[in-house]
Amino acid sequence: MLGGLALLIGLAVWLADTRLPQQSESPAERVNQLLPQSQCGQCGYPGCRPYAEAIIAGDADIDQCAPGGDRTVTALANLLGRAAVGVNPVYGSPGPAQVAVINDSACIGCTLCIAACPVDAIVGAAQHAHTVLRDECTGCELCIPPCPVDCIALRLRLPQRVAA
């Protein structure tokens, strides 16, 4: 009787194991999905995915993402079962969403910022003023240091609403 029950439960567990959907994403992928994807490198890794992989590998802490802010750290802590902490100030301080703006009268068309942008959000050609695609810009600030004439500024990204 007891053996039969054990057999039945065993069968149910085996069925559940084979039939139920598996967690298809890798741990690094699930961490990556919680990151803001600004690709800014402020965490010390060249992009969000490398940082996610470093977290899973145990090389990085979960408190290094400044653009994500405390909310991202909390989400990471929940996912990984660690203590919730704030963003480590060493890696920058969280702030409101920003967007880069090029002063096109000062831009000399050197294309250095285009090469620096991790999400291809700057368009332009050599010797012609460049411009930022507002909807694609993540406000990562990576275009600012390469600019030889300092014509890129960060502005607050104002909330947009589609509804009237």
Binding site: N32, L35, P36, Q37, S38, Q39, G47, C48, R49, P118, V119, D120, A121, E136, T138
Partner: peptide, 9 residues
């Protein structure tokens, strides 16, 4: 927006 940035990256 994050998904879009990731795709572009």
């Amino acid at each position: 927006q994050a998904e879009q940035a990731e795709r572009r990256f």
